[in-house]
Simulated assay, not measured.
Amino acid sequence: MNTKIFLSLAAATLITLTGCGTNPTNAQVGTAAGAVLGGVAGNAVFGGTLGTVGGAAAGAVIGNEVGKKR
């Protein structure tokens, strides 16, 4: 069990650090910000996991489009 947790943590760390290789574009920043804000709003309005995931997905799409226009 500890091995699975360690490998999952190592993989998540590697993925996170890989994203730090270059400066993010405005579309990437917009996507991340939109996903976070959409997830919070979806959870507040609809509650539960489905509301959070749906809000995050919608926020990511909207944030990406807004970021492209900057």
Rank of each mutant, 00 (worst) to 15 (best):
T13W: 12
G63K: 02
G42W: 00
S8L: 12
T52F: 06
G30S: 01
A60S: 04
T18L: 12
T25A: 15
A44L: 14
V29F: 10
V36S: 01
T22F: 05
T18W: 07
A44V: 15
F46A: 01
T13S: 11
A12N: 15
I15Y: 08
A57R: 08
T49P: 14
G55L: 06
N2L: 02
L9E: 04
G39I: 01
I62F: 05
N23K: 08
N43Y: 12
R70T: 15
K69W: 00
K68S: 08
A58Y: 01
I15Q: 11
S8F: 10
V29S: 03
V66D: 02
G63C: 03
V61F: 11
L14H: 14
G38Q: 00
C20R: 15
F46Y: 00
V40I: 07
K4L: 06
G21M: 04
G19D: 11
T25I: 10
N26A: 13
T18V: 12
G21A: 10
G51H: 09
N23W: 12
A32C: 02
I15V: 14
A27R: 11
G55N: 10
K68F: 10
V53R: 05
G63A: 07
T22K: 04
R70A: 05
P24T: 00
V66M: 11
A44D: 11
N2D: 05
L9D: 02
P24H: 07
N26I: 08
T18H: 07
T49Q: 11
V36H: 00
I15L: 14
G67C: 10
I5D: 06
L14S: 09
V45C: 01
G59W: 07
A60N: 01
L14V: 12
F46D: 06
F6S: 06
N2S: 02
T3G: 06
V45F: 03
T18C: 11
I62Q: 09
V40R: 04
Q28G: 12
A33Q: 09
A58K: 00
T31A: 09
V66G: 07
T49H: 13
A60L: 01
A12T: 15
F46P: 04
L50S: 07
T13E: 15
S8M: 11
S8P: 14
R70Y: 09
T31F: 14
G67M: 15
S8N: 13
L14N: 15
A35I: 02
P24V: 07
V66I: 08
N64I: 03
I62W: 04
L14P: 14
G59C: 06
A58D: 01
A33M: 03
N43A: 15
A56H: 11
L37M: 11
A11I: 13
F46L: 05
G19L: 07
L7Y: 12
G21S: 05
V61A: 09
L7S: 10
L14K: 14
V40Y: 01
I15N: 14
T52V: 11
A35D: 00
G34K: 00
T49A: 13
A35S: 02
A57T: 13
A44W: 13
I5C: 10
G30D: 05
G42S: 00
G48C: 10
T49R: 13
G38I: 05
T49N: 15
T18D: 07
A11Q: 11
I62C: 11
I5T: 07
G47E: 07
A11V: 13
G55W: 12
V40E: 08
T31I: 12
G67F: 12
